[in-house]
């Protein structure tokens, strides 16, 4: 999983992709996940980190994360590893 490293993410959840000129809003947990990917974490590490901090079981979060990364891919913010 490779996050587009050029993204600008503001604290208020405003996300700008300079490559395409598109902008997005992302909720705090979404911003946190993007930040974790940017640090180079794998999907499993992201799941560990979030389920440690938040009231959510692993299955539910895994499903939501898969959905979220799917959307990041359709917006070209995330690339599948080659």
């Amino acid at each position: 999983m490779k996050i587009n490293q050029n993204l600008a993410v503001s604290e208020s959840g405003f996300l700008f992709n300079p490559g395409t000129g598109e902008s997005f809003t992302v909720n705090p947990i979404g911003a946190e996940i993007i930040a974790l990917f940017r640090k180079g974490m794998t999907q499993d590490q992201v799941i560990d980190s979030i389920t440690d901090q938040y009231h959510v079981d692993r299955n539910t979060f895994e499903k939501d994360l898969q959905d979220f990364t799917g959307i990041l891919k359709t917006y070209s913010l995330l690339k599948q590893d080659d």
Binding site: F24, T25, V26, N27, P28, G30, D64
Partner: peptide
């Protein structure tokens, strides 16, 4: 105490 969970969510500005 764990934080309240909300699904991650992103939308593009149209």
């Amino acid at each position: 105490e764990k934080k309240i969970y909300e699904r991650p969510h992103i939308v593009r500005f149209e």
